[in-house]
Design a protein around this nucleic acid. Structure first.
Lengths: 135, 135
DNA sequence: TTAAAAGTCTACTAATATAATAGGGTAATA
DNA sequence: TATTACCCTATTATATTAGTAGACTTTTAA
């Protein structure tokens, strides 16, 4: 399941997508409108900024805004960034690969199955962008 | 990601699948062969028994064994039982449904997207059984 | 030039979930 | 009837997630 943090991130990003190219938006405004704990949201937005998804402006009239076209920001990217691996096993993760302990990948039925699940999931998440979330 | 517990469960079930119809298998044997903490494994097997996946025999010559044909036990069933929801959001889960807080399902782009992911995942997990894990 | 606005950053605490352990209880069988 | 082996509840340990606190820095506009 996606963490609460991830859900907050998507809410904030959706909000910013709706305001794309309309100037900076205050953290406090997003927090209030989307009912996200202010300080927690600060952390999340900062993380998204450090990952080049968002940009910000300080001082009066400042705030956060999308750094690029929401149609170019994949849902999969956000999930990986805030939630972590998309795959169901570390040994089939593309971006967070780790060997499973006491498990021989070559002879693991689960391994192959979970590759299929991963691919089916990515087929969807890699194909959608923030723009698609705003219906 | 699947929890360690889930991975243990699949290892144990795979082991029992290979020994289907060959009599009871000791917990201690599974624990040793699959390198699973004994007491933790006891809990897992008991849970699987209470869910009618396994059956057991007490006393000398006892142990655990699959209650039915491994070709009839779906991977999805085990995941739900030991790991919990398969869906990425509570509001799109078939077996563990819960409303997301501060979120209107009718107007949530994530909601629809995650239904697609869920369906793609289930397409695979509901179609595979323990037998398929033993290659 | 300076005060207020607004994001930045580090650290901490609380809550929850996961993983693992302990140990006595109960049923079956040789 | 003793031994084997599963049954069951409770506890502890560890890790992750969620949320909070507060001081700092940059920017802007009066």
């Amino acid at each position: 399941m996606l963490s609460a943090k991830s859900q907050y991130a998507f809410k904030a990003l959706t909000y910013l997508t709706e305001r794309y190219n309309k100037g900076p938006v205050l953290i406090s405004e997003i927090a209030k409108k989307k009912k996200i704990p202010l300080k927690f949201l600060e952390n999340i937005l900062l993380e998204l900024k450090n990952a080049d998804i968002l940009d910000s402006k300080k001082g009066k009239g400042g705030g956060y805004f999308l750094k690029k076209d929401p149609a170019k920001i994949k849902v999969a990217t956000i999930v990986r960034l805030i939630n972590g691996p998309i795959a169901m096993l570390p040994c089939v993760s593309l971006y967070f690969y780790e060997r499973c302990k006491n498990c021989d990948e070559k002879n693991c039925g689960l391994h192959d199955l979970m590759i299929e699940v991963r691919d089916a999931t990515l087929e969807i998440l890699e194909g959608r962008t923030l723009k698609d979330l705003v219906v």
